[in-house]
C-alpha cells in the first residue's frame, strides 16, 4: 500500500574530477513508497533547484534496468539493498521512515568521477574494443539456421549476455576488478559457435586490456556476483579462466 516516509540523505557532492568532494545532508520529506529511488532524487533536485542550489548530478536513462546508465553505492551496496535490482528499479518501499541513506559514486581507479555521482566508465568500452566481438561484416552471413545451437548453450550464452555494463561489479569488488564484466562477454561468445574461431585471442586481449586500464585482480571475493543487478554468475569467471589458460597454452606452443 502507498504511504509516505521521511528519510535523511547523505549524498556525495563533488564539482569536478580534480576537486575534493564531501557528503552533504538533505532531508527527503513525504516520499511516496511507490516512488523509484531515482524519482526520489528527482524530487530532491526540484527542491534544490527552486532553492537556487545545484541539483545532484546522476546518470540515468532508460529507468527500466536495462541501459546500465544508472548506479551508485547506496548504504555501502552497489545499486542499493535489493538483490538483482538496478538503482532505477529500486523502490522506496524498501526503506523505512527515519532511515539515513548514504549515496556515493562508483569508486575505482579506472572510473574517474565527472561530477557528484557521475563517473567515466569508458574503460568498459575500451575492453570491448579489445576483442568483445565476432569479426563479421554486414552482408554474406549464412542462413540463421545453418548452424543449430543447443538450447542449453543458447540459454547459457544469454545468461552471460544479459550484462548491462553498469560497473557495479567493479564498484563492489574490494580489488576493483572487472573480471565479471570481462568474463560475461568472453563466455557469451565462447559458448556460441560463431564466437569460437576468435575465442582464444579474445580472452587474452580483453584480460590484457583490463589490466592495462588499472582494474584490479580477481581474488574470488564474489562481491560482484552478490551486487550484480542482472545476477551474472561467477561461473563465467571460471569459464574465462579456462579460456584464458587454453589461450595462453596455445599461444605458448605456437
Amino acid at each position: 500500500m502507498t504511504k509516505t516516509i521521511n528519510i535523511t540523505l547523505k549524498v556525495w557532492r563533488q564539482f569536478g574530477p580534480d576537486v575534493k568532494g564531501r557528503l552533504e545532508t538533505y532531508q527527503a520529506k513525504n516520499i511516496s513508497t511507490d516512488m523509484s529511488f531515482l524519482e526520489m532524487l528527482d524530487v530532491i533536485n526540484e527542491q534544490l533547484t527552486l532553492e537556487g542550489k545545484d541539483p545532484i548530478a546522476f546518470d540515468h536513462d532508460c529507468r527500466e534496468g536495462i541501459c546500465g546508465m544508472c548506479g551508485s553505492v547506496v548504504n555501502g551496496r552497489a545499486h542499493g539493498p535489493e538483490k538483482g535490482t538496478t538503482l532505477c528499479q529500486l523502490h522506496m518501499r524498501h526503506f523505512s521512515d527515519g532511515d539515513t541513506v548514504v549515496i556515493e559514486p562508483w569508486r575505482s581507479r579506472a572510473f574517474k568521477i565527472i561530477k557528484d555521482l557521475v563517473v567515466d566508465r569508458s574503460a568498459f568500452d575500451q575492453i570491448i574494443q579489445a576483442g568483445g566481438y565476432v569479426s563479421v561484416n554486414a552482408g554474406g552471413a549464412p542462413d540463421g539456421n545453418a548452424v543449430p545451437i543447443s538450447q542449453e548453450n543458447a540459454e547459457k550464452a544469454m545468461d552471460a549476455a544479459a550484462c548491462i555494463g553498469c560497473g557495479a561489479c567493479v564498484a563492489s569488488c574490494p580489488n576493483a576488478s572487472a573480471m565479471l564484466f570481462v568474463s560475461a562477454k568472453v563466455s557469451q561468445l565462447a559458448l556460441l559457435p560463431q564466437g569460437k574461431p576468435e575465442a582464444a585471442e579474445r580472452a587474452l586481449a580483453m584480460v590484457r586490456k583490463m589490466d592495462d586500464l588499472g582494474f584490479g585482480n580477481c581474488t574470488n571475493e564474489t562481491e560482484c556476483e552478490a551486487d550484480c543487478p542482472k545476477e551474472i554468475s561467477i561461473v563465467n569467471i571460471a569459464r574465462l579462466n579456462r579460456e584464458y589458460l587454453k589461450a595462453g597454452f596455445l599461444s605458448s606452443v605456437i
Binding site: 566481438y133 565476432v134 563479421v136 554486414a138 552482408g139 552471413a141 549464412p142 542462413d143 540463421g144 539456421n145 543449430p148 545451437i149 543447443s150 538450447q151 543458447a154 550464452a157 544469454m158 549476455a161 557469451q188 561468445l189 556460441l192 560463431q194 564466437g195
Partner: peptide, 22 residues
C-alpha cells in the same frame, strides 16, 4: 531475413527450440 542471418553471425543469443533452431 538478412538481418537475422547477420545478427546470428555476430553472436546474438536468440531463443532456440529444442532442436537448436531459431
Amino acid at each position: 531475413t538478412n538481418i537475422i542471418d547477420h545478427c546470428v553471425a555476430q553472436g546474438v543469443p536468440f531463443a532456440r527450440d529444442y532442436g537448436g533452431l531459431l
